[in-house]
Simulated scan of single mutants.
Amino acid sequence: MKLTEEQIQSYNENGYLQIEDYLSSQEVQTLYNELPKTIETNSPRVILENDGSIRSIFAPHFINESYKRLSQLDRFVIPAKQLIGSQIYLHQFKINSKKALKGDWWEWHQDFPYWHLDDGIKMPDLTSIMLYLQDTSASNGALMLIPKSHKLGIVKFANKGSELNPKQPQYSDNWNKDYLSSLNSNIKFTIDHSLLKDLAEKNGIVTVSGKKGSVIFFHGNLFHASNINLTPFDRDAVLLTYNSIHNLPSNTKNPRPSFLVGQDYEPIEHLVAEIK
């Protein structure tokens, strides 16, 4: 599927694009059924909340064929190439899970500062695709964003001082790594609160509710967040981030692990038409 010129213009202007019913109910059900198979015990790919529930599963395509196919889906790859303007590779792939009555928030942040400062990626023109596996609304942690905020580039960070992560997020095996401070509910590069308020007053805050199977394409510098899950039902969202093959990470001295930062820079050429 190719995006229309109107869709591309809307993305460039607002920093995001939502499309409903992007995957069929059968494809979504397949991904939901396969999700438990992406979880490995005592794996650094699995990030836990402080209460022990799963917060994120990174690189599900490492061990699951259905999720690998998802990363090669023509409906994802072709639009990502259009938005980025070049051949692309998969930079990051994760499942964010908000467990019923437990799923924690994601503070207001931009994604690109992590990729720029931690991974050494120079340009911000990566695009992420969020896929809802359940009907998602404000009550169970839908994506919240501020339109047009991507135009500001990397903005001033909140001064968190001693708040910044005395508690590291947990691996299932309790490893403690510096880069974990970008993965928990108290992430390190959050947006200055005064700036956030000013821009929210100017541009408003959009809560991107959607039915299962809907997707949101969004820019790496877009301000976004999500709230806790107050419902008695789990909420799972899949996120894939694509980057240009001409915009590779340059941090080779202390790189983050491959499940956080894709190391296969070959252009995605093998496209698939459906999830199975």
Results as ranks from 00 to 15, higher is better:
S149Y: 05
S149I: 05
P36V: 06
F189R: 15
D74F: 07
F157K: 08
K276C: 12
M123R: 14
L101S: 09
Y89C: 07
Y67G: 05
V28A: 00
T41K: 15
D198I: 06
T30Y: 02
K102A: 12
L17F: 03
E49H: 09
I146C: 02
I187V: 13
N186D: 14
I228Q: 10
E163Q: 13
P232H: 07
S149C: 09
I268H: 03
N42A: 14
G161T: 08
L248R: 09
L131A: 01
N174Y: 14
P166D: 12
D178I: 05
N64C: 14
P232E: 06
K253V: 11
K202P: 03
S162M: 11
K81Q: 15
L199H: 07
G204A: 13
G161H: 04
Y22S: 06
L143D: 00
V238T: 02
E6H: 07
L271Y: 04
F189H: 08
Q9T: 14
E40N: 12
K102R: 14
I84F: 10
G141A: 06
H224T: 03
G141C: 04
A100L: 09
L196Q: 03
N184L: 07
I19R: 06
N184D: 15
W106M: 03
F223I: 03
T136P: 04
K202W: 08
H109N: 07
I191W: 01
E274K: 12
D51C: 05
F157M: 06
T127R: 00
Q168R: 08
I63C: 13
Y22K: 08
N174C: 10
I88F: 02
K197D: 15
P147W: 07
V206F: 13
T207E: 14
G120P: 00
S149L: 05
N42Y: 11
Q170A: 11
Q82A: 06
Q72A: 11
G103R: 00
L17H: 00
L70C: 08
S43F: 10
G15F: 01
Y265M: 05
Q87R: 13
L183E: 07
